Amino acid sequence: MSHVSPRQASSLASNIDPRVSQAGDFATSIPGLSLFRRDQPVEPAVCMVEPSLILVARGEKRLWVGGEGYRYDSAGFLITSLDLPANSEVMAASTGEPCVGLVLKLDVPMLAEVIAKGGMPATRSRTIDKGVGFGTMTAALEEALNRLLTLLDEPEAIPVLAPLILREVHYRLLRSDQAARLRQITAVDGQGYRIAKAIDWLKLNYSIPLRIDELAARVQMSPPTFHHHFRQLTAMSPLQYQKWLRLNEARRLMLSERLDVSRAAFAVGYESPSQFSREYGRMFGSAPRNDIATLRGQPETL
């Protein structure tokens, strides 16, 4: 398996550059593929990372998950196998050398199909691992990603060719040093698969009281086993995960739908606006009104 050096990996940066003329995040016409550019270092920002391949083609970033930082550049890539609350930080970027890269959402059914057709049994490992890992870029993976990006110049071919190249990308990932992490989420008898199902439930039901024993039973795990593996994979307890979902949805409601603090708190399941404000301040660093005013570019309220 041939690896790609940072110098060689600049071909991906050259392919991304003309598609990101300014700083920002950009969806593409290929399902699940988005591009990004940053022109300066950026402090850690709260985000939810779906199961994805995250790649920096130039510059350097760090993803914080549960207090642990995963630093990556063009020599490798990040794989996330679950929906993970995280903080994303740009370490190296400038106007002359912007940080550019891509995010490709993983297609779990496609992974399972490739595993089956490629003779790679999705057996579950006895040892559970974290839901994020750093992989080494290979020449084959780089080539497939470059062809996927080049397809953006031929939009009429995307419906026909993109599924084929995406399948190849998933195959290359399953042949990478992150294969075990990916196989874990496709094994229906595995702990990673069950935790993923629990997360799906939490995302739909974050506003109702959480009963760990009921959620554990829903995914056919004992409460202690469920709690242990949930924390090991996500770096959070189920209750902390639910709180993260609630606070971020409340932030969206206040910012986008202009709900006041009390209405946003009640909408996401809090019974006490004061408790909501305390927990919001601990997560985002300031009181809800001040945080939303800052995000809108307005003066903070005292």
Results as ranks from 00 to 15, higher is better:
residue 148 L to R: 02
residue 36 F to A: 00
residue 137 M to H: 03
residue 172 R to S: 14
residue 117 K to N: 15
residue 170 H to Y: 04
residue 89 E to R: 10
residue 37 R to H: 00
residue 252 R to K: 09
residue 287 A to Y: 13
residue 222 S to A: 11
residue 176 S to C: 02
residue 298 Q to K: 13
residue 165 I to H: 03
residue 31 P to D: 05
residue 214 E to K: 15
residue 23 A to E: 01
residue 196 A to Q: 10
residue 51 P to M: 09
residue 178 Q to L: 13
residue 119 G to L: 03
residue 291 D to Q: 15
residue 126 R to T: 13
residue 219 V to R: 00
residue 83 D to M: 14
residue 179 A to F: 00
residue 24 G to Q: 01
residue 48 M to A: 11
residue 148 L to Q: 01
residue 11 S to L: 11
residue 163 P to E: 03
residue 181 R to E: 08
residue 129 D to F: 12
residue 297 G to A: 12
residue 74 S to P: 03
residue 53 L to F: 06
residue 290 N to G: 14
residue 231 R to E: 12
residue 97 E to A: 14
residue 97 E to N: 12
residue 59 G to T: 09
residue 265 A to H: 03
residue 169 V to H: 02
residue 93 A to R: 02
residue 120 M to Q: 05
residue 195 I to Y: 07
residue 233 L to T: 08
residue 272 S to R: 06
residue 120 M to I: 11
residue 75 A to V: 06
residue 295 L to M: 14
residue 110 M to Y: 08
residue 183 R to F: 10
residue 177 D to T: 03
residue 295 L to K: 09
residue 221 M to G: 05
residue 131 G to L: 05
residue 194 R to W: 05
residue 110 M to C: 14
residue 60 E to A: 11
residue 148 L to F: 09
residue 177 D to S: 02
residue 178 Q to D: 14
residue 11 S to E: 03
residue 229 H to T: 13
residue 302 L to S: 15
residue 118 G to Y: 04
residue 169 V to P: 01
residue 299 P to M: 05
residue 85 P to I: 03
residue 294 T to H: 07
residue 127 T to F: 04
residue 187 A to R: 09
residue 31 P to H: 04
residue 226 F to H: 02
residue 150 T to H: 07
residue 79 I to R: 04
residue 169 V to F: 04
residue 288 P to C: 03
residue 14 S to I: 09
residue 292 I to Y: 06
